[in-house]
Design a protein around this nucleic acid. Structure first.
Lengths: 218, 218, 218, 218
DNA sequence: CATGAATGAGCATTCATTCAT
DNA sequence: GATGAATGAATGCTCATTCAT
C-alpha cells in the first residue's frame, strides 16, 4: 500500500515505445482530455505529435485502438496496489485503525490520480460511450477492488469501526467521497484556492464518522 | 421545497414549441445522451425526429445551440427550488432537524434527476468541453445554490447539528454522496438489483453522521 | 425483335433523374470505362460532373452503389427484347430461316451494344470482381436468355437447320462469335479500318455453316 | 507444336528468382487475379508472401512493374510455339488437314491457358487500362501470330479447306470460338458440369464447318 | 538483401450548414 | 415554416513508395 508504483507508472510512456509512439500517445492524451475523444481528429493529433497522420495508424489500427491504448493501462495501474498479494498482511499490521487505512489509501490513490489526471479524465468521460471500456472497468474495478474491499470492510466491521451495512454501500460511499473531492478539486474548480491538507483531512473525517454511525466516539 | 415543478418540467417540452420542435429536442436528447454530443450527427437527429435536416437549423442556428437549448433549462430547473423566495421560511418551519431537510431535498432532487436523467447526463458529459456551459453551471449552481446552502449550513451549525467546517466542504460532501449514489445507481450499475429505499436511507445516515462529527449522539 | 428499344434506352439517362444526377452518371460511366472502377476516384467523377463530391453520395450511398446504378439497367435492357411476350410468335412468322433470325438479332443487339459500349465495357470488366454482378448477370442472361434460346434452337433443329448438339453449345458458339466480333471491332482494334457489313456477313455465315454441320447445303 | 514448353513455363517461376521473389510473384498473381490490379494493395501482397513491404519494391520499382513482370512472360510464352522456326515445316508434314492442325493447336494452347489461368485472367483484365500492355500484346499476338497464321490460312485456303475470306477474319473467328469456349468453361461457369472432350470436339467441328463454308463435305 | 517504420497524398465517406423552392 | 438538394471542408483511414538500419 505504501509502495508507490514508480515502476508501473513508467509502463505507459516508457516500456519499449519508440519516440514517435510516445509523442503520439502524449498528444492524443492532451487532445482527448481537452476536447473529448469524438471531437479530436487524428490529423490534429498527428500535427501536435509532429508525425505524419499515417504514422498513427501504423501503430494503432484505428482511432479507438489509440483510445484503448491510453486508457487501458490506467485502469490496470489504478487497481494494481489493491491486488498486491501482501496487501492484507501489511494492512493487518500497519492499519489497526480504519482511519489509518483510509489515510494511506486516499493519499496513495490521490497521488496516482493527480499524476494521471488527463488520462483518468479521458477514461471517466469515455466510459459511457464505449461498452468495451465499461466492461473493462467493471471487470477490474468492480471485481478486483470490490473483492478485496469487501474483506477489508468485514475486517473493520468486526472491529466495530464500521457500521453494519453492506460492503458495497461502504465502498460506494468511500469512493463517492474521495472522487467527489478529486473531481471538485481538479476538474470543476481547479483554479480555486484549495487547502489540500485540510480538505483531505475533512474528507477522511467525514467518511470516518459517516461510516462509524451513531456510536461514533472519537 | 415541497412544491413539485410540474409546471417547470413542462417548460422544456411544452412552452410554445411546435410539434416538430419537440420531436427534434427529444431525438437530440436521446442521441446526445447515448452517443455524446460530438458523436451525434444532425442528420441522425433529423431522421429520428422525422423532419428534414434543414428544419433543425431553422430552429437552432447551430448544432451547439441545440445542445444549449437542451441543457440550459435543466440547470435552471435544477436550481429553481433552491431560489424559491419562501424556501428559507418554509425550511425554518418544516425542517428543524438537518436530517429532515436532507431527506426532503434528496428525495425531491432525486426525483428530478431521475425524470431528467438523459438531459442531466448530457449536461454532466458536455460541461468539460464547453466553457459557456461551465460558466452557466458555475453561475447557477455555484452561486445560487452555494449562497442559499451556506445559510442553511450556518443555520444547522448554529443548532449544533453540523460540525464546524466551511460550508463549501459541507456542500461538496453532501453533493458527492448524493451524486455518487445516483451515478452508481443510474449510470454505472443500472442493471443491478438495488434496494432504493435502504440505499437512500444509508446515504442519508452516512451524510448525517459524517457531518455530525465525533459528537454524534443519535 | 425489330422493335428497337428507343424508349428503353432513355430509361437510364432519362427517367426522373435530376440534371446533376445525370451528369454524375455520365461522368462515372466515362471514368469507369476508361480507367476501371477501382482506379477511378469519386473526387474525379465529381470534378468531371461539375458537382461537389458530397453530391455523389447524396444520390448513391457508396461508390459501389453508383457502379450498380450504371450497370444493372444495362443487363435488364440487354435482355429485354428476348422476353417480349410475342417474341416467339413474331419469330415463327418472320424468320423461317435461322439465318434471318441470326441477322435480325445480331443487328439489333449490335446496335444496342454500340450505343451502350462504355457501359457494357464496365459490366464486362467488373463482373469478375463483384459477386452480386455475377449473380445478376447469370440470373438475367443465364436464365432468361438461355430459356428462350433453347426453344429457338429446338425449333431450328427440328427444321434441320441446326446440327443436333446441345442448345447450350449452340448458344455458346453463337455468342462467342458475335461478342468476339464486337470485342475485336470496338475494344481491341477500334482504330482499324473495318468493313462492318462484310464482317457481319462473314460472321453470320461462319455461325450458320458452323452450326449447319456437314450437311451444309446453301 | 508438339513440343511442350516445360522449360519456358519455368521461366516465370524458375529462372534465377530468389525464394522471396517467387513468393511475391505468386502472391501477386493470386491477388491480382482475384481482386484486380487496382484493388490489390502492395501491403496485402507482402503479407500473403510473408515478406516485408519494402522487399517488393527492392525487386520491382513500382507496383506496375510487378504487374508487367507477371504478365509479360505470359504473352511471350503464349506466342512462343507460333514462332518456332520449324513450325511451318512440321506443320506441312503433320497436318495435312486443317482439322488436325486445329485440334493440335487448340489442345496445346488450351493446356497452356489452363495452366496459366490466373495470369491470363490478369492479362485480359488489365489490357484495357494499360497502353503498354496493349502495345505489347498487339506487337506479339497481333504481329507474330497474325503473320504466321496468315500463311497457314493461305495454305489451307489453297487446299480448299477454308473458305476464301480474309485471313484476319479467319483468325478472329477461330480465336473467338476458342476463347469463347475457355472463358465460358473457366471463367463464367467453372462450377458447371462440363464434358470437356465433347465440347472441344463440337467447338472444332463448329470452326471447321464455319470456315469450310457452303462446300462443306465431310 | 531484407526490413519495417515513416511518409503525405489520396481515398471514400460524413459533416454541419445553406438556400432556393 | 418546412423541405431536401447541394455544398466543400473535414474525417478516419489506406496507399505506394522511400530509406536508414
Amino acid at each position: 500500500m505504501i509502495n508507490p508504483e514508480f515502476k508501473m507508472d513508467d509502463l505507459i510512456d516508457g516500456e519499449e515505445l519508440t519516440d514517435k509512439q510516445k509523442k503520439i500517445l502524449l498528444s492524443a492524451i492532451e487532445s482527448f482530455s481537452e476536447k473529448g475523444f469524438a471531437a479530436t481528429s487524428t490529423s490534429e493529433i498527428a500535427k501536435k505529435a509532429g508525425v505524419a497522420e499515417g504514422t498513427i495508424f501504423r501503430h494503432y489500427k484505428t482511432k479507438k485502438e489509440l483510445l484503448l491504448a491510453i486508457v487501458t493501462p490506467v485502469i490496470a495501474k489504478f487497481v494494481a496496489p489493491f491486488i498486491l498479494k501482501d496487501l492484507q498482511k501489511v494492512m493487518d499490521q500497519d492499519f489497526e485503525q480504519f482511519e489509518d487505512f483510509l489515510k494511506a489509501i486516499l493519499e496513495n490513490r490521490r497521488d496516482f490520480l493527480i499524476k494521471n489526471l488527463p488520462t483518468v479524465k479521458i477514461l471517466v468521460q469515455e466510459i459511457p460511450f464505449h461498452p468495451e471500456l465499461k466492461e473493462l472497468f467493471q471487470e477490474h474495478i468492480g471485481l478486483r477492488i470490490y473483492e478485496r474491499f469487501t474483506k477489508l470492510v468485514d475486517h473493520y466491521q468486526a472491529k466495530g469501526q464500521i457500521i453494519e451495512i453492506p460492503a458495497y454501500s461502504v465502498i460506494r460511499m468511500v469512493l463517492s467521497s474521495i472522487f467527489g473531492y478529486l473531481i471538485a478539486r481538479y476538474m470543476i474548480l481547479p483554479e480555486a484556492d484549495w487547502d489540500d491538507d485540510a480538505e483531505t483531512e475533512r474528507t477522511i473525517q467525514f467518511i470516518l464518522h459517516g461510516l462509524a454511525g451513531p456510536n461514533s466516539k472519537n
